[in-house]
């Protein structure tokens, strides 16, 4: 069962259509099924966002333009901040979105190569210029 009720979901999708539309090769938040697993996962990981999110979603008012959203955000800045966190994380945690921006996540890589020969060559002028510390009396 979703952590948001139907009315909350509908309201969130209205925000999302304006805040995270599709375009430039990116899926919209609505297209990734925002108001299902993506939002539920975020709220399960950080349930402290639910209160503010619920508040901003409960505010009456049109959501037809970005100016409408701006007006709602001014009425409850904290609630809007929570909405932003939930929306953005639900979006960028999604595999389709990560694939679209070429982000593999914070993956593990081998660090054993250390500095390359090219790196050492870059250091040569620094070494050649010599010491830069300030002479200091004991």
């Amino acid at each position: 069962m979703s952590m948001l009720d139907t009315a909350q979901c509908e309201r969130l999708v209205r925000f999302a259509r304006l805040m995270v539309p599709g375009g430039q090769g990116m899926p919209s938040a609505e297209a990734i099924g925002l108001c299902g697993d993506p939002v539920d996962e975020v709220l399960a990981i950080d349930p402290t966002r639910m209160e503010g999110l619920g508040r901003i979603l409960a505010l009456p008012g049109e959501i037809g333009t970005m100016a409408d959203i701006e007006a709602l955000a001014q009425r409850d800045a904290s609630g809007f901040a929570d909405l932003g966190v939930v929306l953005a994380n639900a979006y960028f945690m999604h595999a389709d979105v990560r694939a679209a921006i070429g982000y593999p996540g914070q993956e593990a890589r081998d660090s054993s190569a250390g500095l390359t020969n090219a790196d050492h060559a870059l250091l040569e002028p620094v070494i050649t210029r010599g010491s830069i510390f300030r002479p200091t009396p004991a």
Partner: peptide
């Protein structure tokens, strides 16, 4: 303004800056 951070600018910012 929110229009700088959201909407198509969200994608543009990430495309230009991420990575």
């Amino acid at each position: 303004p929110l229009t700088d951070a959201w909407g198509l600018n969200l994608h543009e910012n990430v495309r230009q800056k991420f990575g």
